[in-house]
Design a protein around this nucleic acid. Structure first.
Length: 916
RNA sequence: GCCGAAGUGGCGGAAUCGGUAGACGCAGCGGACUCAAAAUCCGCCGCCCUUAAAAGCGUGAGAGUUCGAGUCUCUCCUUCGGCACCA
């Protein structure tokens, strides 16, 4: 390589190795509690050790590192830790595929990926590292579970899972593809098995209210969590069943009760089971409902189907007979597993009623319809137009002929809705004594009535369900429970924890070794001493990732966490993928409240600021592989890695095609998608580090897009970053090679020097604001590039000019440090500093005198269109600005002989002349 | 199906509080240097019409609010993330 011939050229691998060695030798990132300094806890979501670092990791941890190093330069005591989310399904899959035990596979991956993270130069305190599969870690999780068990926050109940009837195993939702098991291809069934649950619903109110105390979290995440929690106020109402028994329904719209034309119950509802006993058609329908997976996406996109049971309930107000149906869209685990269908006022009920020809009865109307009805009551014939208009608004039928109100009204009330339901709140009609009431009045009146009659009550329902933590898998934390035939489920006593997961197992099949090994589970009951069996299920891996952030703060503690945690917590900045917006971040918040209620932490929320990064995407390329036409589109394509493709362009630079480097023949260009194995569009960070150096990779991943948007990997763009760094390196090294110069003298500066120095100090302000407040790293880097471009045009070799160049370069080394810490470390030394940059060199401060501007450029518009610009003093009056604007040639031409109607003057920004 | 987000030049993106649309980078084009290439440096670069200038058009589509809309409101389209056992 040419660089090696020029000693002043930038050599990233040598620069980075030297900087990393220095940081490691000086333990630069190992921190401890120090009450005299402001703490800053910067946390990135811990990686799953899948084998190798991917670009998503690079992006995530670079964001965290930029913020960490920036905060350190602000004088904070910064903690940035790292660990491994080591339990999980992929290790089992790898074990099946390659015959390696999950523990071995996982630990080898960790070793490899740790080396890759170190090569990126992240300012991580490695002394706090752990893996969640370490018994030293999960023992605390087991203890916590036992404590919660004793507090009644843990319970066991039957719960539905995906069952593969061929492999005889439980499948994760991910392993169900189009309703079939991914390995066996068998149609998946729903099966109920006993599982352990954590009572997260006991904290539902607090999880909801807490969102209002998190101004540093993205609004989108808070909205998603709010909707997920799904608090709704309604009425629980009992419908008596004609031949005995009763069905409880929950509704948020009791005002539509008179419009209920059917009850729908879940297939798993006891009444459905009962009705099917002597009815083969019902049983067949229920069996049909058992087919397919349990994921909500699958259930909700299924065709809405139902079957009449032949049973009738009695309407709680009118006493009318209401048919009872079994419907596949009623969820047994939400509300009561039964609902009243009001087709006129609910989208799904409307579709169901239309499909099965059930009556649709309108009982709520809009204000416009209400007014029309009132008008009609006075004089029907003359108000048909108003009626039509109102009916149109409520999507109801047309009224053709003027007719008396007494004819029109009943028809209107019963016939509504050829297009769809009326979903808004309104005024009740066709509801007997409740006619004329609004939503709130009807709600209160019916609630009072049912509470008096003992037929119903006000009820707050949540969409949130308790957290099912049982997994029928091997590679996870064992659930510390012993099943005794006499004493039932008994928690493992403290002194017998941890229940260790055996790691030296033969893992060849789909079954968990814990379940197939007849010896492992044998134990004695802690209560009666009799023979008993261990629980063979393991925890959901979200259990481990729900409290790791707290463990970092108490390395080596004998308890789960100790007092040191309250120095660091809450996390000041949490960073991770937007895909974790709901589940992980909700469990994370929940577990923090559990730790708080155990007296271990003092805060209510685990993290004050949250940044959700977007995905890393890349172009895809493929060839049709010519398999059979019956195969799906995906299977017919052979995906080609972007590294193996050359792009072809026309003379304007537009992409016209792509060819495979190997054979020179064309390939198809696909969509730009998330990097994945299946689309073969992943770019290996290691190759990029080897080719360009970690600083360039860091710089590009921060420059290509703002952190919350998706990032498109593009190697030509990486080369651009490499050019910038090389240029900067050369500028600094050639500057320091020249003779010394005196201090910069502001009193002696000329106009060009003043302009450059103002840009320098504006850049200090902007970069600090972009990193510290806006978290827009791309624009911070753009501003630094602009400054370097300006410096390239500055060829002043006078003493003052050289002194200013020194100030610019030295400041840029510091401003770039969060992004390119290795190069900055080396260049700081090159600039002659004894002290290493990491040894708490502070962030530069802008000089207010350098920032002063004496004039501003204003845009001048005529009727909102730009017709010129105006250079004006900061203190110019509105009148001065207006007359100067009106004198501009472009303005004179645009105004012509039209009359000026209005002039809008916004000092410092714009003059807009409105003519007519 | 439900919840959330995003759509701006050939491409990634900028425009921070409703005030000059396209900063910065990539790609492309032209030039300098070189025996030549690479690297580097300089210049041009939204579309349309044009010798040029000027005008006109332009932020997914359609409407609205405003002196002024990429930005606010409504409707729609497309793409992406999540949907409780992938992590």
């Amino acid at each position: 390589m040419q660089e090696t011939h020029d000693p002043s050229a930038y050599n990233p691998s040598a620069v980075e190795a030297a900087a990393q060695k220095f940081w490691s030798d000086t333990h630069a990132f190992e921190v401890s509690e120090d009450a005299s300094r402001a703490k800053y806890y910067c946390l990135s979501m811990l990686p799953y050790p899948s084998g190798a670092l991917h670009m998503g990791h690079v992006r995530n941890y670079t964001i965290g590192d930029v913020i960490s190093r920036f905060q350190r330069m602000q004088g904070s005591n910064v903690l940035q830790p790292m660990a491994w989310d080591a339990f999980g399904l992929p290790a089992e899959n790898a074990a099946i595929k390659r015959g390696i035990p999950p523990a071995k596979w996982t630990r080898e991956n960790i070793t490899h990926m740790r080396g890759q993270l170190k090569a990126m130069g992240f300012a991580i305190d490695w002394s706090r590292e752990f893996a969640t599969c370490d018994p030293d870690y999960y023992v605390h999780e087991q203890r916590m579970f036992v404590r919660l068990f004793k507090q009644g926050l843990v319970y066991r109940k039957m719960s539905v899972v995906n069952w593969d009837p061929v492999d005889q195993t439980v499948l994760a939702n991910e392993q169900v593809v189009d309703g079939r098991g991914w390995r066996s291809g068998a149609v998946v069934e729903k099966r109920e098995i006993p599982q352990w649950f954590l009572k997260i619903t006991a904290y539902a109110d607090e999880l909801l209210d807490g969102l209002d105390k998190l101004p540093g979290w993205p609004e989108a995440v808070k909205v998603m969590q709010r909707n997920w929690l799904g608090r709704s106020e309604g009425l629980e109402i009992r419908f008596d069943v004609e031949d005995g028994g009763a069905i409880e329904v929950f509704t948020t719209r009791p005002d539509t009760l008179m419009g209920a034309t059917c009850l729908a119950i879940a297939a798993e509802h006891p009444l459905a089971q009962e009705a099917a006993r002597n009815n083969p058609a019902l049983q067949a329908f229920i069996d049909e409902c058992r087919k397919g997976g349990v994921s909500e996406a699958e259930l909700e996109t299924k065709e809405k189907r139902g079957i009449e049971t032949g049973l009738y309930a009695l309407h709680p107000v009118t006493g009318e007979r209401v048919p009872i149906w079994i419907a596949n869209f009623v969820l047994m685990n939400y509300g009561t597993g039964a609902l009243m269908a009001v087709p006129a006022h609910d989208q799904r009920d409307w579709e169901f009623a239309t499909k099965y020809d059930l009556p649709i009865k309108m009982v709520v109307v809009s204000d416009a319809v209400r007014d029309a009805i009132r008008e009609l009551g006075r004089d029907a014939a003359e108000n048909t137009d108003a009626m039509s208009a109102a009916l149109g608004q409520s999507k109801a039928i047309d009224v053709v002929e003027p007719r008396p109100a007494e004819d029109v009204l009943p028809e209107f009330e019963n016939s509504i809705i050829t297009e769809g339901p009326f979903l808004e709140h309104g005024t009740l009609v066709n509801s007997g004594e409740y006619d004329g009431m609004d939503y709130r009045q009807a709600f209160d009146a019916l609630a009072a009535r049912f509470e008096r009659e003992g037929r119903g009550k006000r009820q707050v329902n949540w969409r949130l369900r308790d957290w099912g933590v049982s997994r029928q898998r091997y590679w996870g934390c064992p659930i510390p429970i012993i099943h005794c035939p006499k004493c039932g489920a008994v928690p493992v006593p403290e002194d017998q924890l941890p229940v260790r997961l055996p790691e030296d197992v033969a893992f060849s099949g789909v079954q968990s070794p814990l379940k197939t090994d007849p010896e492992w589970r044998k134990t004695t009951c802690p209560e009666c001493g009799g023979a008993a069996m261990r629980e063979t299920d393991t925890f959901d891996t979200f259990m481990e990732s729900s409290w790791y952030y707290a463990r970092y703060c108490s390395p080596g503690a004998a308890t789960q966490i100790d007092a040191r945690a309250n120095y660091w917590l809450p996390v000041d900045q949490y960073i991770g993928g937007i895909e974790h917006a709901i589940l992980h971040l909700l469990y994370f918040r929940f577990y923090h409240k559990l730790l708080r209620d155990a007296g271990l932490v003092h805060s209510d929320e685990p993290a004050t600021n949250l940044l959700c990064q977007g995905m890393v995407v890349a172009e895809t390329f493929y060839r049709d592989s010519g398999l059979g036409a019956r195969d799906s589109e995906e299977q017919q394509r052979e995906w080609i890695n972007p590294a193996d493709v050359d792009i072809q362009r026309d003379e304007k630079g537009r992409v016209v095609g792509a060819i495979l480097k190997a054979d020179g023949l064309p390939v198809q260009i696909g969509a730009t998608e998330k990097m994945s194995k299946s689309k073969n569009n992943g770019v290996d960070p290691q190759l990029m580090i080897d080719k360009f150096g970690a600083d360039t990779v860091r710089l590009f991943s921060m420059f290509a897009s703002p952190p919350d948007q998706s990032l498109e990997w593009n190697e030509a763009g990486v080369e651009g970053m490499s050019r910038f760094l090389k240029r900067f390196w050369r500028d600094v090294t050639s500057h320091v090679a020249k003779p010394d110069h005196p201090e910069f003298d502001p009193a002696a500066q000329d106009a060009t020097q003043k302009t450059l120095r103002r840009q320098l100090h504006e850049t200090i302000v902007k970069v600090g604001d972009d990193i510290g407040r806006r978290r827009n790293f791309n624009t911070a880097i753009a501003a630094l590039m602009e400054l370097l471009n300006a410096l390239a045009k500055f060829d002043d070799m006078s003493d003052n000019g050289r002194a200013l160049r020194h100030e610019v370069l030295e400041t840029m080394v510091l401003l770039l440090n969060p992004f390119t810490p290795h190069a900055s470390h080396a260049l700081w030394q090159a600039l002659g500093h004894e002290q290493a940059l990491i040894e708490d060199v502070p962030w530069p401060k802008a000089d207010p005198a350098a920032l002063v501007r004496h004039s501003v450029t204003l845009a001048v518009q005529v009727n909102g269109k730009l017709r010129g610009t105006l250079e004006a003093g900061r203190d110019a009056t509105r009148e001065q600005l207006e007359s100067a604007a009106r004198a501009l040639p472009g303005v004179v031409a645009a105004v012509g002989d039209k009359s000026v109607l209005k002039v809008v003057v916004v000092p410092g920004r714009i003059v807009n002349i409105v003519v007519g």
